[in-house]
Nucleic acid binder design. Sequence first.
DNA 1: TATTGTTATACTCTATAACTATA
DNA 2: TATAGTTATAGAGTATAACAATA
Lengths: 159, 159
Amino acid sequence: MNNTGRETALETRDVGADGAHIDAATGLVRLSGLIQMAYQRVSERHDLTPVQARLLCVLLGGPRGMAELAGCFGVEKAALTGLMNRAERRGLALRSSVPGDRRAIQVTLTDEGRRAAIAFHTEMRTEMDRLLTPLADEDREHFRRTMAEIIAGCGPSHC
Amino acid sequence: MNNTGRETALETRDVGADGAHIDAATGLVRLSGLIQMAYQRVSERHDLTPVQARLLCVLLGGPRGMAELAGCFGVEKAALTGLMNRAERRGLALRSSVPGDRRAIQVTLTDEGRRAAIAFHTEMRTEMDRLLTPLADEDREHFRRTMAEIIAGCGPSHC
DNA sequence: TATTGTTATACTCTATAACTATA
DNA sequence: TATAGTTATAGAGTATAACAATA
């Protein structure tokens, strides 16, 4: 045994030369890392932070309240205030009042924000599809179904 | 059509009631989100930040230099300095000199760091396995192989 | 009283640029 | 000159706690 104890896996480490004998848990973490790297790469291409990109993508679904967005992201309301301040300063989104509740505000995309969101979204989809190009069509469809099963097993998402 | 334009997917949004008809690109992003949430949850349980947990897991493979770790994480060397300052202050890792190169330092785990790394790692593996429990054994093994194929298609990782 | 959103403060993580020391 | 690591500075993202306004 000529390495220094690299039998633990679950992190960035070579299990076999090509990752072929990786265990499922390690595979999930590594796969997630690849996806997050792509997310960051695509965000940067559009001069967005990953969190901003995510915000814009959520807002493509329509206006949202601050508390709603906080719940969706799993962060405190106060974090959203800062996030929106920066997004608004960059002209990506804006706050508008909600008729009928003078406490509340609605967050909506600006035209620029919508353009950025769609461009990001399109490119991200391309990157994800590229990730699956090594697979045979049959495997790709089977993989998609299995992902759906895993996701469904985790219950509904918060947004 | 009684929704507000939620046909874009790729983000936290309901495609069908149970995610069963999710497309592959959206599935990948959502799956990655679930994994990152688990990573964060497990990190918190061990009083670690996700980045610290990752650092400790890498160091389970043996001592590393600062530049090596920076390359492994895809960040600048300066970021590692801060990361190590905090890790050292928390008693998780320490710097030691390298015989033969007086510029270099080696980062190693403390006993506490090693315990935390192993505990984190063990629990993270459990969480990942739990994610796969809805699957039939056959599907789980097929899924594992497909992940390995995707990962291999991205070339070697940097650590 | 509960909810919506903000402010103030502090910490982690990161980038950039300038720097020291050694190879 | 190149490499290893640090310092200084700035900004993003987050948590907590205290707050204001409205429901």
